[in-house]
Simulated assay, not measured.
Amino acid sequence: SSSNPTVIFDVLKASIPDSDGQNSLFYQGYEQLHENAHLLCRTRDQRLWRANYIGMHSADQVGPYRDSITGMSSDICSTRLPLFILCPKGRMNIGLNRDQWIPNVFPLNQSIPIEIVKQYRFIGQLMGMAIRNKNYLDLNFPALLWKQLLGEEITVKDIEVIDIQSFAIIKKIESIIAENQPLFDDMNDLRFEIMSSAEYMYELMPDGKAIRVTLNNFKEYCIRYREYHFNEFRRQIEYNRQGICSIVPNSFMAFLTVNELEDAVCGKGHIDIELLKRNTQYSNCKNDTPFIQQFWKILSEMFNEEQKKLFLKFVWGRNTLPSFDEEFTQKFSINVLTNRASCELDRTFPKSRTCSFALHLPVYSSIEIMHERLNYPITHCSNVDADG
């Protein structure tokens, strides 16, 4: 509608790196929209603002508007802003869920700066807009964030899927105590402090770095350790939730499951098989081998969107592809296994190496057997947190 605001985006400015993200497209949009976002994002218009890119002219306003949403949302899960950080598994580049982003960490004994609070709320308002108007955002958040947005309790497992080390130390000590084993020497170095998800030390109590963990106070240490992990992102996600609830009624949120909320905000997420095919290398075969053609037919035509995501998770430890060819930092490798009898190969499951983005694929005697043998490990083995 004609009353919708014009938002000016400076792409040249956005291309200049800065420490606080204020050059980014997200921050440019936030500055111009956040004061009235609680009203604007509730309207049913297909286009909530006019996107005006400095130095660019477009007769079509829908394209630039969509581009502005894509540009702002791609900044959210990136190092451009001080709002989200790559999860510990992503930084260590191990296991599954490496491509998921978590709220940046702020000390629990200090308030979060008001400017940051407003940006978290604004992201929530964009999420509310996505739910209402289907202007989906490209966000890659772990289940614990979606769960907390719905007011659900998070579990130890929810935290471990993004940080495999999160509870390792206390689990190790608990098992040693349970078995009446002598405690290891490293326990002498333990203090009442914890490594945050942003990799800085946080004291679990005043002067915690001077208080040694002993058998007598170990229970108290465990309580405070767990409490920290369960509350590390609570405030940041609560500000996101406040933003969503200024746009979408609470009663609507109450009917959603975690997966439904993610789909409502991000869409179903499309895996572009042609893009993957262009970025694949082969060993022991060529791309026009009938057997390889069958593999791509299964992936593009016989697998649904969920199976494609599971397949990607099985071979690469993540459920999204890069958007463009040039964003592939490594090629997908298909290594064909032929060195056994056909009946034996038909009984063999494919194997993957997520660290090298590789699939070891036996030569099956039919497309039906290949489909069955591929579907089983992606469905049953993609939650195994190791290369295998």
Score class of each variant (00 low, 15 high):
residue 329 T to E: 15
residue 37 A to D: 03
residue 383 N to A: 11
residue 180 N to R: 08
residue 290 P to M: 04
residue 102 I to T: 11
residue 284 N to G: 04
residue 369 I to H: 05
residue 197 S to P: 12
residue 386 A to H: 04
residue 92 M to F: 02
residue 107 P to T: 05
residue 291 F to L: 01
residue 134 K to L: 11
residue 286 K to F: 07
residue 49 W to F: 14
residue 306 E to N: 10
residue 193 E to Q: 15
residue 323 S to E: 13
residue 225 Y to F: 15
residue 235 R to F: 13
residue 161 V to S: 08
residue 365 S to N: 09
residue 10 D to K: 03
residue 164 I to F: 11
residue 73 S to G: 04
residue 133 N to C: 13
residue 381 C to T: 01
residue 380 H to L: 02
residue 183 L to E: 01
residue 174 E to P: 00
residue 112 I to W: 06
residue 333 S to N: 14
residue 325 D to T: 10
residue 198 A to I: 06
residue 275 L to Q: 03
residue 249 P to N: 13
residue 285 C to A: 14
residue 385 D to C: 10
residue 112 I to C: 02
residue 163 D to T: 01
residue 184 F to H: 09
residue 331 K to M: 11
residue 166 S to N: 13
residue 207 D to R: 10
residue 235 R to N: 15
residue 243 G to L: 09
residue 362 P to N: 01
residue 304 N to S: 05
residue 371 H to Y: 15
residue 62 V to K: 15
residue 143 A to N: 15
residue 30 Y to Q: 01
residue 177 I to R: 12
residue 375 N to M: 14
residue 16 I to K: 12
residue 150 L to W: 03
residue 108 L to Y: 07
residue 301 E to Y: 02
residue 102 I to W: 03
residue 88 P to K: 07
residue 226 R to L: 04
residue 4 N to Y: 07
residue 284 N to H: 15
residue 43 T to E: 15
residue 262 E to D: 09
residue 220 E to A: 11
residue 177 I to S: 02
residue 194 I to V: 10
residue 261 L to R: 02
residue 99 D to L: 01
residue 203 E to V: 01
residue 337 L to Q: 10
residue 384 V to T: 05
residue 10 D to I: 03
residue 283 S to Y: 08
residue 29 G to V: 07
